[in-house]
Simulated assay, not measured.
Amino acid sequence: MSRFEALQRRVNKREKLLEGRYQQAVERKNELKASWREAWTPGRIVIAGLVSGFVMGRAEPVKIAVKSGNLMQIVTLLSGLFAGTSAQEAAQSADKAPARPATRRAKPATPPTARRRRCKRGERDAA
């Protein structure tokens, strides 16, 4: 048997395999289609319609507000309002708090870069 005939045989074998897989895929698609249609009972269709209508009804006002830019203005206004009230509450609670004696502050830590510089300078001085 020549090399060409061996290749032809392999190609024919692969074509048959491909045709079989295609037939399996078509059968599975038909089974899925049938089970999908059976699953959609009238009650489920009504519930799906109600849910999608509710979602679209809730989404539509948001779309309009976003397009007009009013939503951003409202968010900005509300964030400023909440920030103002929380700052006011903090100021009031600070007025009511008892005065504490001044505590001794800890020495701030030296940043790592400054430590490295000191080491390098010290090494230079030693040399």
Rank of each mutant, 00 (worst) to 15 (best):
residue 80 G to Q: 14
residue 3 R to G: 12
residue 40 W to I: 01
residue 27 E to C: 09
residue 87 A to Q: 05
residue 93 S to H: 05
residue 52 S to R: 02
residue 34 A to N: 10
residue 115 R to C: 07
residue 71 L to P: 03
residue 126 A to F: 14
residue 98 P to I: 08
residue 71 L to C: 07
residue 89 E to H: 05
residue 100 R to K: 13
residue 97 A to S: 08
residue 26 V to W: 04
residue 78 L to K: 02
residue 55 V to R: 00
residue 109 A to Q: 09
residue 91 A to K: 02
residue 75 V to K: 07
residue 115 R to I: 03
residue 47 I to Y: 10
residue 56 M to Y: 00
residue 55 V to I: 13
residue 20 G to C: 13
residue 42 P to R: 01
residue 18 L to N: 09
residue 46 V to T: 07
residue 83 A to T: 10
residue 67 K to E: 12
residue 85 T to H: 10
residue 49 G to H: 07
residue 62 V to R: 04
residue 34 A to F: 07
residue 38 E to L: 03
residue 49 G to I: 00
residue 55 V to D: 04
residue 103 T to V: 11
residue 89 E to W: 03
residue 5 E to A: 14
residue 13 K to E: 14
residue 109 A to D: 05
residue 31 E to R: 03
residue 11 V to Y: 15
residue 64 I to P: 00
residue 123 E to A: 03
residue 99 A to G: 04
residue 52 S to D: 09
residue 96 K to M: 11
residue 36 W to R: 00
residue 27 E to D: 15
residue 106 A to M: 08
residue 74 I to Q: 13
residue 125 D to T: 12
residue 18 L to C: 15
residue 39 A to M: 03
residue 122 G to N: 07
residue 97 A to W: 07
residue 90 A to W: 04
residue 17 L to Q: 14
residue 114 A to Y: 03
residue 22 Y to I: 13
residue 91 A to C: 10
residue 11 V to L: 09
residue 23 Q to T: 12
residue 41 T to C: 05
residue 11 V to C: 10
residue 44 R to L: 07
residue 29 K to G: 13
residue 16 K to H: 08
residue 13 K to D: 15
residue 93 S to T: 06
